[in-house]
């Protein structure tokens, strides 16, 4: 598995001194993180440590209160005009898929290109079929999401994001809502995607995936980045006590 090919050192995401509060609750504390083009990052940590909050700040589904978040050269803030443009270039895959239930799989995939990027229908259809083939479910194109299994739905969600031709893909626990036998098919799709050179930030508890795919593994606890390292070093030689404790818990089962 080659993941060492020369990466261009150019940050697509740059977070500096970022703080996030929910009311009085300090959800993220002094986050500093740079993600380069082509880099694959896995974020792990105990429940409630702020993993979801962090990646939701990257396309401003959540607002941060101080510090800066720069995505693809654009700083995110409350009064920005072009948030939709930034969002259209940042794909996001959710734990619960968030497919549009009243639209077919194909319509789910053509909606973004047609409505946001103003791609003509025929071309949008081609794009959609291309990515549905890529995630191995072109034959489900005319079904409705409710007719698919969880794993298939999640792959549609990945295809839907890819149709926007994003520069980065964010994944928030994409396999946590799936039955065990469906986890593999989604992880395979994501591994494929990683090999194609996509920049990815993945929140997951799948440590096997992290070892295999990640360039960097980040451990979070209580709203802080505790440790960030290359996977081999991260798993074999964790620095902090909290990381060790967490790893002993997740690697047992």
């Amino acid at each position: 598995m080659s993941k060492t090919n020369q990466k261009v050192k150019e940050p697509i995401i740059s977070i500096k001194e970022m703080n996030k509060y929910y009311g009085d609750f300090h959800a993220l504390t002094n986050i500093d993180l740079e993600v380069n083009i082509g880099e694959r990052i896995v974020i792990c940590g105990p429940s409630g440590s702020g993993k979801s909050t962090l990646i939701r700040c990257l396309n401003r589904l959540e607002a941060h209160q101080s510090g800066s978040v720069i995505v693809n050269g654009v700083e995110l803030h409350q009064h920005m005009k072009d948030i939709d443009k930034v969002r259209s270039e940042v794909g996001m895959v959710f734990q619960h898929f968030n497919l549009f239930p009243h639209m077919t799989v194909l319509e789910n995939c053509t909606a973004g290109p047609m409505w946001v990027n103003k791609v003509p229908p025929v071309e949008a259809h081609e794009i959609a079929m291309k990515y549905l083939e890529r995630v191995n479910i072109p034959e489900q194109a005319d079904k409705y999401p409710a007719q698919l299994s969880g794993g298939q739905q999640q792959r549609v969600a990945i295809a839907r994001s890819l149709c926007m031709n994003p520069k980065v893909m964010l994944f928030d626990e994409p396999t946590s809502a799936l039955d065990p036998e469906m986890v593999a098919e989604v992880l395979d799709t994501m591994t494929d995607l990683a090999q194609s050179g996509m920049t990815m930030i993945v929140v997951t508890h799948e440590m096997g995936f992290a070892k295999q795919v990640a360039d960097r593994v980040i451990f979070m606890d209580e709203g802080k980045i505790i440790e960030a390292n290359e996977p081999i070093a991260f798993f074999e030689n964790p620095q902090s006590e909290r990381t060790k404790k967490f790893l002993s818990q997740v690697l047992v089962h």
Binding site: M92, F94, L99, W115
Partner: peptide, 20 residues
């Protein structure tokens, strides 16, 4: 999740309202 899914694709408010 429907709002978040649409926003993440870059849909604007009126589009989300009308189509989703």
């Amino acid at each position: 999740g429907q709002w978040e899914g649409s926003r993440a694709l870059g849909f604007k408010f009126s589009l989300i309202m009308r189509k989703i």
